[in-house]
């Protein structure tokens, strides 16, 4: 059982850490001040959530200390989906990624408030209130830009098309899926995906955008099993550069 729970926590924590790092790359270069602040604040939130999840892994499940989990593992030990690793690109890509990811994350935490694994259920109750703001932020811009000018609409639709099969990779199943479901830890990726589609479809339509068609063969899987795009390694090298020069240094 503990391997199943660890896998779930690692993929959530790694998603949060990596997208948090990507969010921080908007600091100083956001298209307007409010968006600079929004992405910087979300970076702080997400990295805080990652820390809380690594702390449960350390204190409850006997894994290494949070800093070591965040900064000293190799690329193949990371269980994040490939969506979160992608470079920030243009603002249209970043906001669409945030929209697709944040809705999935909020729904995941909402489901986890019912988890039989208490430390996670307690954290989920707290974190979902914070992610609610991330979702409201993404919804606002998807609606405004989807229905904005001809150019903003075209860019949003194209970003959505390009991001769709990466986003579906969020729901890649692990080998512990059945175990998590039957133990009441988590209701499973399939159920999460169902709720996610139900949630985002009307928002996409209300934004004047079209839900891209799903081609099962194009869904980007692998991240949850440690196989990553070419973008994760350089991100880790940069993120961990300072701490890896002396992991035991006192800050």
């Amino acid at each position: 059982m503990s391997n199943a729970v660890k896998d779930l926590l690692f993929k959530m924590a790694d998603d949060a850490l990596i997208i948090g790092h990507r969010n921080s790359e908007w600091t100083g270069i956001g298209p307007m001040l409010e968006e600079d602040l929004a992405f910087s604040s979300m970076a702080q939130d997400k990295i805080g959530h990652a820390l809380a999840l690594y702390t449960i892994l350390h204190e409850v499940l006997g894994e290494a200390e949070p800093d070591k989990l965040g900064f000293m593992r190799s690329e193949n030990d990371f269980k994040c989906c490939q969506l979160v690793e992608q470079p920030i690109g243009e603002y249209d890509f970043s906001i669409v990624r945030q929209f697709l990811f944040d809705h999935a994350e909020l729904l995941r935490y909402e489901m986890l408030t019912q988890s039989s694994f208490q430390p996670l259920a307690q954290l989920a109750k707290k974190v979902k209130g914070e992610i609610k703001y991330h979702v409201m932020h993404a919804d606002t811009f998807v609606k405004q830009l989807g229905k904005g000018t001809e150019e903003s609409h075209a860019r949003m639709q194209s970003a959505l098309n390009n991001t769709w099969h990466l986003a579906l990779g969020i729901f890649e199943k692990s080998e512990w899926e059945e175990e998590l479901i039957s133990a009441g830890v988590f209701a499973g990726e399939e159920e999460l995906k169902r709720r996610w589609l139900e949630k985002i479809t009307p928002i996409i339509e209300a934004s004047g955008l079209q839900l891209p068609a799903t081609d099962e063969s194009k869904i980007v899987y692998g991240g949850r099993k440690g196989y990553h795009s070419e973008f994760l390694k350089p991100l880790l090298d940069e993120m961990c550069e300072v701490v890896r020069t002396d992991i035991d240094a006192e800050w």
């Binding site: 409010e34 602040l37 929004a38 604040s41 979300m42 939130d45 409201m136 932020h137």
Partner: peptide, 12 residues
Amino acid sequence: RSSFGSTLCRAI
């Protein structure tokens, strides 16, 4: 104006 502000707990 924005649900994010100068600190995590503030909106503008």
